[in-house]
Design a protein around this nucleic acid. Structure first.
Length: 473
RNA sequence: UCCUUAGUAGCUCAGUUGGUUAGAGCACAUGACUGUUAAUCAUGGGGUCCCUGGUUCGAGUCCAGGCUGGGGAGCCA
């Protein structure tokens, strides 16, 4: 029996054995015990006969103990049930002079440097339980809707995906790699016989599968060697990429909206206690902040709002019009220019989502020049069938498109984007053999976890974040 | 990569114009108390003031360079 089960069934009078970690030891008599099964602690009442004085001095915050005892109605006010111990055994001590986690508020920055121990805190155990709930919800959603999970390769030989800087995968002796006559490194001699990288996206592989299996999705790690130092970027992150044959852009947006709402509802139903804890935490933090930086509504209310409201759908062109006609623009409050043909800046996206619509927004049909080569060219020859979903607080959470399925048009786009045809031969072939309309999108898993937990730094929603200059643990 | 801000006890922070032995709360140890809820009270121990160099009679404080963290921007998911 774990604490979650005990607190949901309240089995008074039951004799049990329970293992867990000490959060606090008050008055040399009361242990707040946590076993990770839920956010709540169980109070263990220790009388002198259950614990020797010697062992009593070995119990500190962080220690692991095993308790035999009986579940009884609590005499204190803070809890309904408590475990009256008949025997307490210290399984693992925790030297209080060295153990850095205390039963007080620690800064998230400090805990980031103690990533191996931060699981022991209420905040991080809640975040990682919710991360699991979301991961499970994602597989659930796609499975229930007839999608096939495709494991895209992590090591890739394609070097033209255009999604960012890539990490090289090599078996060479870095001191002395084989070189060609012109002095450049001869990757022909390397393990795979060519220059290989860690994948930046499983999309292209997912497309290959979708053009046979119909509905597929990938959910795996991806890697970007960009020198991005922000609270929204990681060098190693997990991405969900569904790809559906015969879907157009509208169907793609329908799928993305339905999928996001399902994940949020799933967490509201299955992770309520952890959400409540994080909501409280956020409210406490907000009290320290100036009014304009505070959240507009409590966490659970924000999630329910997204789950129950239709996302706003507008085109890029309409978005530009809204921005140009806004009083914000007329008062010259935007730092960056707004003009058809250039990409929207963070401040513009925030304005649309947080001020103008105050709900998630699906932006579609961007100018072709600012989007990737594989996006389908629209009839106007100027825009592509792209879509970004923007949410308050995070910004872009989903990026997707209807893909260019016409061989000639795709070949032309490759030329425009300086992508060598021979490196993409396998991708182009799908457009020669039984091509069809299809669409998909990518969702950054950590951004979803951020949105659902209300955490504001992406490094706090993945157990061991990989960022520039940091690969500890 | 750019802008900005910070780095002082295990943690959170104060430290005045450059001036004697660098402080507080929490944590920890000891004692008191014993149905507590981050218990309380008393006493005590605890410092590479991020690193390197410089200015000065004297640097936690001023200057230069570097390292690391935070916030923002770009790139994006």
């Amino acid at each position: 029996m774990n604490i979650k089960e005990i607190l949901s069934s309240l089995p008074l009078g039951t004799a049990i054995q329970l293992n867990g970690w000490v959060r606090t030891f008050r008055n040399e008599q009361f242990i707040a015990l946590n076993d990770g099964s839920c956010i709540s602690n169980l109070q263990v009442v220790v009388n002198a006969d259950a614990l020797s004085e010697e062992d009593s001095k070995r119990i500190h915050t962080g220690a692991c103990i095993s308790v035999h005892g009986t579940l009884t109605e609590s005499l204190g006010k803070g809890q309904a049930i408590e475990l009256t111990a008949s025997k307490v055994e210290v399984l693992g001590e925790s030297n209080p002079n060295e153990f850095p986690i205390q039963m007080k508020k620690h800064s998230l920055e400090f805990l980031r440097e103690k990533a191996h121990l931060r699981f022991r805190t209420s905040t991080f155990s809640a975040v990682f339980r919710l991360r699991h709930q979301l991961s499970f919800a994602i597989h659930n959603y796609f499975n229930q809707n007839g999608f096939v999970n495709i494991h895209a390769p992590i090591i890739t030989g394609s070097d033209a995906e255009g999604a960012g800087e890539m990490f090289t995968v090599s078996n060479f002796d870095l001191e002395n790699p084989p070189r060609k006559e012109d002095g450049t490194i001869d990757f022909g001699e390397d393990f795979f016989g060519k220059h290989t990288h860690l994948t930046v996206s499983g999309q292209l592989e997912a497309e290959l599968a979708a053009l046979a299996l119909g509905k597929v999705y990938t959910f795996g790690p991806t890697f970007r060697a960009e020198n991005s130092n922000t609270s929204r970027h990681l060098a190693e992150f997990w991405m969900i990429e569904p790809e559906v044959a015969f879907n157009d852009l509208a169907a793609n947006a329908d799928l993305a909206e339905d999928f996001l709402k399902y994940c949020i509802r799933y967490v509201l139903e299955n992770g309520k206690e952890d959400l409540l804890f994080l909501q409280e935490r956020e409210a406490t933090e907000d009290k320290q902040k100036p009014t304009e930086e505070r959240q507009t509504a409590p966490l659970i209310e924000r999630l329910e709002f997204v789950a129950n409201n239709t996302f706003e759908r507008i085109t890029y062109t309409e978005a530009i019009d809204i921005l140009l006609n806004s009083s914000h623009y007329k008062k010259k409050k935007f730092k960056y220019p707004i003009e058809w043909g250039i990409d929207l800046q963070s401040e513009h996206e925030r304005y649309l989502v947080e001020k103008h619509f105050q709900k998630p927004v699906v932006l579609t049909n961007y100018p072709a020049a600012i989007k990737a080569f594989y996006m389908r060219l629209n009839e106007d020859q100027k825009t592509v069938a792209a879509m970004d979903i923007l949410v308050p607080g995070i910004g872009e959470i989903i990026g997707g498109s209807q893909r260019e399925e016409r061989y000639d048009v795709l070949l032309e786009k490759c030329k425009q984007f300086n992508i060598p045809e021979e490196s993409m031969w396998w991708y182009l072939e799908t457009r020669k053999f039984g091509t069809c309309q299809h669409a998909g999108f990518g969702l950054g898993f950590e951004r979803l976890v951020m949105y659902v937990t209300g955490m504001t730094n992406i490094r706090d929603v993945i157990p061991f974040p990989r960022t520039p200059k940091n690969a500890e643990f």
